[in-house]
Design a protein around this nucleic acid. Structure first.
Lengths: 218, 218
DNA sequence: TGAAGAATTAACCAAATGGTTAAAATATTT
DNA sequence: AAATATTTTAACCATTTGGTTAATTCTTCA
C-alpha cells in the first residue's frame, strides 16, 4: 500500500521519455471521463478501462471515486482560474487589453477542452464555496489589478458606474456561454464543429469591441 | 394496466378542486428532482418519495425512468422555447423591443426556475438534435420574424453585418449565463440569493441597452 | 541472490438501483 | 350487489456499482 503523499518522489528521478505512471494514467483517464459525463454518470470501471488498468488500482491509488473526483475537480477549477489570474493582475495592461486577453485565453482553452465549463458549473452546484476557497478565486478576481482599474475608471467617469459583477457576467457570458450552449446552438443553426470553432475565433476580435461599448453605455 | 395514451380521458370530467392525480404527482416530483440533480444522479425512489407514492407506480405509469425523463425533458425544452417563439414572431414589435421582451421573459422564468438552463444544456449533450426537432426549435428561431427583421436591418446598414448566431449567443449569454454560473458568481463576489436576484432584475434594463450598442459596433 | 516492499490482478462482496409480480384495495360498470 | 377493471402495495429479482482482499508478479537494494 502506498499513500498519495508518497507518490511525488518517483517523478523526480526521470531521465527521458517519462512513460506515464499508473497514477498518471488514471488521472488522465479520470479527467477525460469525468469531464465528459460528470460525476454521477461516470463508472469507476469506465475510468479503469480508459486508463487501461485493472479497476482495483483506482482504489489502490486514490482510495475512492469521490477522492479521485475531488482531485480532478480541483485541477480543473485551478486551470480555469489560473491564467485568468495572470491576465487580471498584470499592471502593465489596460482594462481593454485585459478583456482582449481574457477572451483570447478562454476561447483557446475551451476550443481545446469544450467540456470544462459545463463540468465546473454542474459540479459547483454541490459545494462551490469550498472549491472557490481552495483555489483562492475570490482573491484572484476581486482583489485584482483589474478590479482596481475598473473602479478607477468608474471614478474618472470613463465607464458606466456599475458593480463589477455585471462586467464579469458580461465577459464570461459572451465568451464562455457559447461553449456551454454549443449543442443547442449547433442544433439551432445547423453548424458543424469546424464552423462553430471559426465562429468562436471570430468572437476573439468581436468581444473586446462589444465589451468596450458595453462599458460606456447606459 | 393502463397505457399512457388512455390517461387524458379522466382529466376531462373535472368538477372543482381537481386534486392532482397520481400521474400528475409523479410528473411534478420528477420535474423537481430531475431538474435539480440531472438524470444520472436521480434515483427513481427519490422521485417516488417526493411524489408521496409507492415506487412501483412510477413504472406502472411511465414504464421506465428513461421514458419519464424524456417527457420531463421535452416539457422543459418546450417551455424554454415556447414564449421565445411568441416574442420572436410578433410582427408588431421592433428588434430592440424584442430584445427587451426576451431578457424580461428569461429573467423572470429563470428567477423562478434557476435550474432549467443547466439541466437543458447538460442533457442536450446526449442528443440535442432529436429534441430540437421535436419542439421545432430551428423553425421557431431561424424562420422567425425576428431573423427577418435582423437581416433587413443589416441590409439597410442599421446594424453591423454579422451572422445572427452571434446575436443569439450574445443575448442568451448576457441573460442566461448568469443563472448557469450563479454558484460560481455567488462564491466569487459573496452574494446572497436575494442580492443575486436583484442584480438580475437590474439586468432587465441593462441588457437591452447593451445589446443595442453591440448591434451597431464593430 | 534473495528478502522486503510495492504494484497488479482476479475473485469477491454488500449495497444500491431499475424494474417486475402477484396479491390486495379501490373504483367502475352492469 | 356482483362482476369487472383499475390502482396501489409489499415483496422480490437481477444487474450494476463502488469497494475490498488475498494471492501473485514485479522492483529494489542489501
Amino acid at each position: 500500500m502506498v499513500k498519495l503523499e508518497q507518490m511525488a518522489k518517483k517523478e523526480l528521478k526521470m531521465t527521458a521519455v517519462p512513460d506515464p505512471s499508473t497514477e498518471e494514467k488514471i488521472m488522465a483517464a479520470a479527467r477525460t471521463v469525468f469531464l465528459e459525463k460528470g460525476f454521477a454518470a461516470t463508472r469507476t470501471r469506465d475510468i479503469a478501462e480508459a486508463a487501461g488498468i485493472n479497476h482495483a488500482l483506482l482504489n489502490y491509488y486514490f482510495r475512492s471515486k469521490e477522492k479521485l473526483f475531488q482531485i480532478i475537480m480541483l485541477n480543473t477549477v485551478k486551470q480555469f482560474f489560473s491564467s485568468l489570474s495572470v491576465v487580471f493582475n498584470n499592471p502593465e495592461t489596460s482594462l481593454e487589453k485585459k478583456v482582449e486577453e481574457v477572451a483570447n485565453y478562454y476561447i483557446n482553452l475551451l476550443t481545446a477542452h469544450p467540456d470544462i465549463p459545463l463540468f465546473i458549473m454542474t459540479e459547483m452546484k454541490k459545494g462551490a464555496k469550498d472549491l472557490m476557497n481552495q483555489v483562492g478565486a475570490k482573491e484572484i478576481v476581486m482583489k485584482s489589478v483589474f478590479i482596481k482599474q475598473y473602479q478607477q475608471a468608474v471614478k474618472e467617469g470613463k465607464i458606466q458606474k456599475l458593480p463589477p459583477v455585471h462586467f464579469l457576467m458580461n465577459v464570461l457570458g459572451l465568451t464562455v456561454f457559447p461553449f456551454i450552449a454549443s449543442p443547442m446552438i449547433k442544433g439551432l443553426v445547423d453548424l458543424s464543429d469546424t464552423e462553430f470553432t471559426s465562429l468562436m475565433q471570430e468572437r476573439k476580435k468581436l468581444i473586446p469591441i462589444w465589451v468596450k461599448m458595453i462599458l460606456k453605455a447606459t
